[in-house]
């Protein structure tokens, strides 16, 4: 029997598979087709202090081996999430869930995190300072080491839960941002958010997305994600949640060998709604194939 357990910021996961925010809603659509308790956890839809409609449509465009999205953080707001979504999640998921939080000002992050801090179902706060699809917030906090540290400090001051800062790859040196978050007290880091991209309709001679740019995800970004996790693992001592194009149990192991303690799976949930379950089920056999008895032993092993 192989051991798939890992510990993320002091909370044990039965396996490291976590559906990524924005690809799993609040879990309900997936709980209809499989028991989502097989997952390690899941990161729910990016939540802001106030409700948001998000961007105009079209919000989705296909790319080679991936997709662009410019949803723009559509969500019902933190109060609705606490009043409606968390009680619903309680019925379908009996493990700690990851709360993904976004904001447009330091105060926004603080407001949402403070409210979520009191919710016992929530294991971790994943603070998104890397959304490429909103203006005047989101990624602008994640592209400056100083601003990233400021958000980290502000959030840490209002919560006892582990704080995982979600980083963008759209920077010159991701390790600078990672180190700044660590120094400001982050308990973990998750990376990567999507890479900014554009697609143009030949027929309309205009960008496909109403927002013009969108975030690239899917297998196309997997090597970029691996590179970022590799670099950040070398630079910090806090755990990393690796994500970006993971689509199989093999990808999970590769990401962990690069330095991830746990992984998030994103775009693949959208093309195969059973992907989370399949990857969890495939993992033990793939571990055996590569002579891995205990998954925690391979974290960062590729660094030698």
């Amino acid at each position: 029997m192989v051991n798939t357990k890992v510990s993320l910021c002091g909370i044990e996961l039965t396996n490291p598979i976590i559906p990524a925010s924005g690809t799993f809603g609040f879990g309900a659509e997936f709980a209809e087709i499989y028991d989502i308790n097989v997952l390690g956890s899941f990161s729910f839809k990016g939540t802001t202090a106030e409700p948001r409609f998000g961007n105009p449509t079209p919000r989705i465009a296909e790319t080679p081996s991936g997709m662009l999205n410019a949803v723009g953080l559509q969500n019902p707001g933190v109060d609705h999430v606490i009043a409606e979504e968390l009680p619903m999640i309680k019925k379908i998921f009996n493990k700690p869930v990851m709360a993904n939080v976004s904001g447009f000002s330091i105060n926004d992050y603080v407001t949402a995190c403070e409210k979520l801090d009191s919710q016992e179902q929530i294991g971790w706060l994943e603070v998104n300072i890397s959304c490429p699809n909103v203006h005047g917030g989101g990624m602008s906090f994640g592209t400056s080491a100083e601003a990233a540290a400021e958000v980290t400090r502000a959030v840490k001051a209002v919560t006892k839960k582990p704080v995982i800062m979600k980083l963008t790859p759209n920077v010159t040196d991701i390790t600078e941002i990672a180190k700044a978050c660590e120094a400001a007290g982050a308990d973990g880091l998750s990376l990567i958010n999507t890479l900014t991209g554009v697609r143009i309709s030949l027929k309309n001679r205009r960008p496909i997305l109403a927002n013009v740019t969108g975030g690239l995800s899917g297998p196309a970004v997997f090597p970029v994600a691996l590179r970022c996790v590799w670099q950040v693992y070398k630079s910090v001592n806090i755990p990393i949640v690796g994500m970006g194009g993971i689509s199989s149990a093999e990808d999970v192991i590769e990401m962990m060998m690069a330095g991830a303690t746990a992984v998030e799976i994103g775009a693949v949930n959208l093309v195969d709604p059973y992907a989370g379950k399949k990857i969890v089920e495939d993992l033990p056999a793939v571990m055996e194939k590569y002579k891995i008895n205990d998954l925690s032993e391979i974290i960062g092993v590729a660094h030698g």
Binding site: G54, T57, R59, V71, Q74, L270, P273
Partner: peptide, 22 residues
């Protein structure tokens, strides 16, 4: 009709406004 990501309600790629909310 709208451009869709998943087709089953997970990604919020095809949301529209209606009299009764999104």
């Amino acid at each position: 009709e709208e451009r869709m990501g998943c087709g089953f309600g997970a990604c919020m790629g095809c949301t529209c406004k209606t009299k009764y909310g999104n």
